[in-house]
Nucleic acid binder design. Sequence first.
DNA 1: AGATTCATGCAACAAATGTTTCATGGCCGA
DNA 2: TCGGCCATGAAACATTTGTTGCATGAATCT
Lengths: 290, 290
Amino acid sequence: MAEPAKSSPLSELRIALPSLPLRLQEVGRFVAANDYDATTRSMRDLAAEAGADPAAFTRLAKAIGYSGWDELRAALTEARRPSQTAPFSGRTRGRRHGPNADVTLILDKLEAEAAGLPRIPAQPIAEAARALHESKRIWIAGYRSCRSVAELLNYELRLFRPEQVQLVGTSGPDDLDLGAFRPSEAVIVIGFLPYTHASVRVSQAAHRSGATLIAIADSLSAPMAEGADHVLLFEAASSPGFFPSLTGAIAIAQSLAAVTFSLGGAAAKKRLENTEARLTAASTYVPEKG
Amino acid sequence: MAEPAKSSPLSELRIALPSLPLRLQEVGRFVAANDYDATTRSMRDLAAEAGADPAAFTRLAKAIGYSGWDELRAALTEARRPSQTAPFSGRTRGRRHGPNADVTLILDKLEAEAAGLPRIPAQPIAEAARALHESKRIWIAGYRSCRSVAELLNYELRLFRPEQVQLVGTSGPDDLDLGAFRPSEAVIVIGFLPYTHASVRVSQAAHRSGATLIAIADSLSAPMAEGADHVLLFEAASSPGFFPSLTGAIAIAQSLAAVTFSLGGAAAKKRLENTEARLTAASTYVPEKG
DNA sequence: AGATTCATGCAACAAATGTTTCATGGCCGA
DNA sequence: TCGGCCATGAAACATTTGTTGCATGAATCT
């Protein structure tokens, strides 16, 4: 017999299952198959759905070593808790110094960031893009390291909406722009921990003005996400290293721009072509060699 | 006002948050920040941890349109149900046009970019970082969409080497800076197809001056990579979409900064701490809540 | 300044929760 | 067949749950 994985209450359950009375096995299997409901719904509720007696759940818990259903559920709940500490936390220890310490640091970082990208929720991006599409004007704000994201977004959106996109604070102090927000416009704020006062002020001004507020942030509880119509989440701290990762934010920004462009249809395409023609005429680019 | 993202109860909460009474905002923030506990633990329990009155939770739920806390929690529970977490199974199904065409576009894009990151060669980054570490001064140049990468790199490097890092072209025309390159310095140029004349001129000037040239590019044959001491490659076109992907370049930039910082040792750490202390003193950041 | 609205904490409430007890029914060994 | 054992369901239990009414205090309006 293999060593049981004692860590998870679910494995304890599975191990003890065969030696249990018939009815308790039934209930046990139900719990194992519906452990999410087990943590969220009430015992009686589960009993009704499983077609069993409520008491069976208490008996099951005691049979596998818990003081009662409450304790079992608490264990299940903890086992299910989303990893508050990133899975890559204790990663760099033990590696320490070595000739390739730098290289492994980079590899870890890249791997972690690659893992974070598919976890970005796509649906909110699509919804935010639609909001952008319907906005008369788009404001973009980002400070400190997030400024780079803001400027990228500004650049890409201006390629096909040149006169309707503007960075907050480029033509004077921020405060000048904060008063210019209008309900038919959209404001994009980018930020993550630690949050700057400036970004919070922008988002508050946007909310007050009635403009559509889109926040690109690392947490739903970010102060600039309060009152936002759309929040686009990425993982800033998921990667080892000294600075929060920006790949997620960049990926979101580019997806946002791409979908917004796609919504723009033929008109957007035409404007993009115009812009490119102008740049070519100004010989901005080095001609491709055949 | 734009159509709010009604899908998630958390977004409804965020939207309504700013217009709520003070105490309700407090518990609302607490719920948003601890939504997992909100679905699993009891109202009184949460109230004790949040340092608020249990009644506040009921009032919060009613304030944002639910019949009571029970209903809000049920909504949160459903929003968290893991059954929704199966987006990556049958992804490449006939996507074409449809209500979710945008979403699948985004998912494909993210997936492709995630796949590109681990393919970035780490060794050249480590070597380039060493070159940066030994440089008396660091110049950074990037144009158009690559400007965002340049500015990010500039920002992060300046955190611990404030007086030795400079963006090309910030204090006047580029040409002024181009004549200032010295052999003991390093010049970083970022660019990909189509290549701008400006970036090529910077790299040529760097090469002529004898400075160490580091190119972050999408191809070894990129004109700004000619004569470069270090070329850091990423895949710009790997992802579907209309704009070349910048996640690779961002990842490289951040890795470069991280390794350079790590090479800096205690001195770099000290300077970073000083910078952070100065920012805190200027109250740039919103203080974290306990 | 007085009146009024509103936010907020406290305490009591009914409903629902997990647990326990008890009676029943089936099973196996004498 | 009888007697002990245990699994099982129903009902009663004490506790905890979410809710609501009420008093207090601060802010706003007249």
